[in-house]
Design a protein around this nucleic acid. Sequence first.
DNA 1: GTCTATAGTTCGATAGAC
DNA 2: GTCTATCGAACTATAGAC
Lengths: 229, 229
Amino acid sequence: MPQGDLAHKDARTAILDAAERLFAELGYGGASMRAIAREAGVNQALVHYYFDSKDGLFSAVIERRAGDINLRRDDGLDALLAGGTPNLEAVVEALLRPTIELGHDDARGGAHYAKLIVALANGSDGRSRLLTSRHYDAIARRYIDALQTALPGLDRPSAVRGYLYCIGVALSVMARTGRAATLSDGVCDDDDPDVIIARVVPFLCAGLRALVVSGRSGAAGPTPTAQSS
Amino acid sequence: MPQGDLAHKDARTAILDAAERLFAELGYGGASMRAIAREAGVNQALVHYYFDSKDGLFSAVIERRAGDINLRRDDGLDALLAGGTPNLEAVVEALLRPTIELGHDDARGGAHYAKLIVALANGSDGRSRLLTSRHYDAIARRYIDALQTALPGLDRPSAVRGYLYCIGVALSVMARTGRAATLSDGVCDDDDPDVIIARVVPFLCAGLRALVVSGRSGAAGPTPTAQSS
DNA sequence: GTCTATAGTTCGATAGAC
DNA sequence: GTCTATCGAACTATAGAC
């Protein structure tokens, strides 16, 4: 029952899900259209019918998730700005929560989304840059503005860099390489998004506040603050 | 230098260089043995002669760079520890400088190394995990120890996570996605490793110090410090 | 060590029936 | 919208001459 049955996953969605999974696990070059079709349980020609080419399929996979994430990020920021000058912690949390939550929601394929977005955001090839810019430039600029609003004295270049540091840490957490568990001999096996966010936000906000101080001295010097030791 | 000619790049090295470049730009699945051989200017069968398989070649590419980086990191830490209790900023800089410097040394193929190490460190596939663990576990544990020495009160799990946050930011900087330039409309076009390190180290150290404070309250709560606003 | 030649698969994409 | 069939190219890897 392909037309009108809500319980049935239609072919298009099945292809997107399969593609997301295989692109995430094997990379763009490693995932084949044949394997994607097989995983989706559809004919290979149908993938081309819906998405034209491998590139078109990849774009569609990214677009589906980016739309969801950016909607949540926009809403989060709208809510914060409606209440006057927002708190820095709240801004950083509003930025990271949607993607970290989705990335850990394995019932919704979060692990695959996470691997994919990490590879996309850190990719410097043409395809990654194009898609990242297309889907994330606007929301990034909104949040960079918000960082400056929440943290007076943070100049524009520092806000841009600070934003990217936040994204960098979020990506490293979402990558789920199992490295924390390995290096802590099993003590750190963090899976709850709330706990992850609660740990990462104070780290990032302290760093962002330090950018205000060190940003004042221009570009030079390692600024050996050393308030302890 | 196989037959005594220093100016001549031998086949093995040429293959490693070509492989590094193509693995970096096209990913493991996207780079073919044929293309690597062509880029290296050698016969395709020669690649198998030296490295057996595609997997063996990839391992060799990673191993060459990891050896270099870890030597520098070990030396840096040895020097610091010889002078008594090290400064936190110095530890973080010793950790990041070797990889950031190499990643920006384009005369030595730094851009390719950078892309490769970013993909490796953020990869959650079996190959990435195996190679990362094999080449970076020992040095990671040394630096996690050093973070605890330089920052009394930082418990082990927090030190592990803090270490990974530092690596995460370093990777995001090394990825050179061109995103800082895009989002700042060309103002941020950071290429000098010294400048990058000078900016990133204070950010990370402030974050690490915040881990001591927030680590005290256990795992719960978003710890709304909010010293501003 | 370096080469040619090739076996045996798998690839992305399309044409055309239904 | 879904299928079969297939083209032409690219793939990893190996056998074997030199």
